[in-house]
Amino acid sequence: MTDVSFIGGLWGLLILVSLSTYIWRASGVVIAARINPDGALSQWFNCVAYGMLAGLISRIMLMPIGILAETPLADRLAALAAGFVLFWVFKRHMLPATLGATAVFLALTTLRSFGYL
């Protein structure tokens, strides 16, 4: 564990971490106040936000870190595919797709941990 005694313990570290992440949110406010909301620059930032989020989520799906990394890629993708089938069957409704994919994933990992797969 990290030595945090010199910054006032764990709470001190939390304050530093919180501030260092809030910087991005606050910078967004400062810049947003100075650009034309309907302009090209604003549109571009919107695209960057979507690109960044898609990159993050696809990385979590394909190359997770932590506990999710202990599951096979095939399970993650098979469950996602099942979700897309439901998404299409239910005419683009998120709820059945999300729950369906998670249920398939739960079933697969459960079967694996009991040695059936």
Partner: peptide, 9 residues
């Protein structure tokens, strides 16, 4: 970092 473009948009 994603919060920067997100808050701007």
């Amino acid at each position: 970092l994603r919060f920067l473009p997100m808050s701007m948009s």
